[in-house]
Design a protein around this nucleic acid. Sequence first.
DNA 1: AATTGTGAACATTTTCACAGCT
DNA 2: AGCTGTGAAAATGTTCACAATT
Lengths: 226, 226
Amino acid sequence: MSESRDPRTRVIPEATVARLAVYLRVLTGLADAGRASVSSGELASAAGVNPAGLRKDLSYLGPCGVRGVGYAVPALRERLARALGVEQSRSCVLVGMGNLGSALAGYAGFGTRGFSFVGLLDADPARVGDVVGGTVVRPVDDLEEVVAEHGVTIAVVTTPAPVAQSVCDRLVDAGVRSIVNFAPVTLQVPAGVDVRQVDLSVELQVLAFLDQQKGVQVVGEQVVLP
Amino acid sequence: MSESRDPRTRVIPEATVARLAVYLRVLTGLADAGRASVSSGELASAAGVNPAGLRKDLSYLGPCGVRGVGYAVPALRERLARALGVEQSRSCVLVGMGNLGSALAGYAGFGTRGFSFVGLLDADPARVGDVVGGTVVRPVDDLEEVVAEHGVTIAVVTTPAPVAQSVCDRLVDAGVRSIVNFAPVTLQVPAGVDVRQVDLSVELQVLAFLDQQKGVQVVGEQVVLP
DNA sequence: AATTGTGAACATTTTCACAGCT
DNA sequence: AGCTGTGAAAATGTTCACAATT
């Protein structure tokens, strides 16, 4: 038997999954603008990737387009949303209602992207009871209850670094299997739990490195400053 | 001539650079705790990577440790800071003082990580004059002036999506060559300018995909739900 | 005895080139 | 004629195993 071509059994590379989310964002913009179809070249340019790579990414979902024509915008958008598992809205909790947590909870864009925050939690009694983005902030002690209540499997951690690991442990014990962590610590989790780390300091340091390199040119043995 | 081993001329892979920033964060914690030395195993575990990979990452900087012993914490930390170009503080501007921009500008951790925000800019006159993290918010019209004043080469964009591209264009024209973008759009920039995109929706959608996969098991031709 | 540094094997990801449809 | 879909090639990244060193 040759390798299966059935989209149900084909594995999608992780790098591709991240780009599919970007294509979905671009397609939503095109759909809102009333566009009916789009070519791989235009979509790739809007997403900042190479057109052949985009076609390969989409090919993991099975044939999506029409040769000689392009892709139908609404159909492709639906297909991507289904593949990513955001066809119907998914419930998330957010722990840590400091400035960053409040900013994220208040951003209306998540609703249109397939996520809703059913629980906002904070350890500070002064913040409990506040309403952010239409949801009331509850005490962090309610964590297990909120997760169970809504069958939450995705959480966002925006707590101070020193408590992020213990919050993470509680989330995992409560049944959460996917976490986005904004605290600048590496979370330790058991196998089967996925963590995505977002750290502005790391992003800035990568840029500082690239920036520094731009000012240095190596010719033979000599380092030349332009 | 064989390939150069001179650390000045050796290229460091981008994936490695991102991890070096994480090692730097862990080392700073260890230094603060008074630790003098650390092994690749312990450092790797704290950073969430494989020990052999960590040693290979560090080897791009030239020999860093002592065989049979480990790495000297303060020396390695300094070496990493120098390699990343964050030995002395770098000036950045931040455009867009909404909730997210304010949260980032107010986070004290950047100072200790080698960055200082010398310009906070916003288009809303109601926000201009506010003081966030010790810096006064200025009108976005001052963008070119602030960048020139401090020779800024790194910027953070936290504006609403519709204006992010035009802000980006102005930053690039003013001389900025490195941008972290939090707006959910793909910025178009000329060659020589680096953009790092941070998008919580993309992170959540990747997790939604992985989450969905956990619930599906394929046996032969059959898709089985556990 | 313990731990680093690294070549070699392996895996993944990106790019290319072009066959295959419409 | 134009654009998609994809195998093959190239590049990049990761893991392993072990020699080298203290």
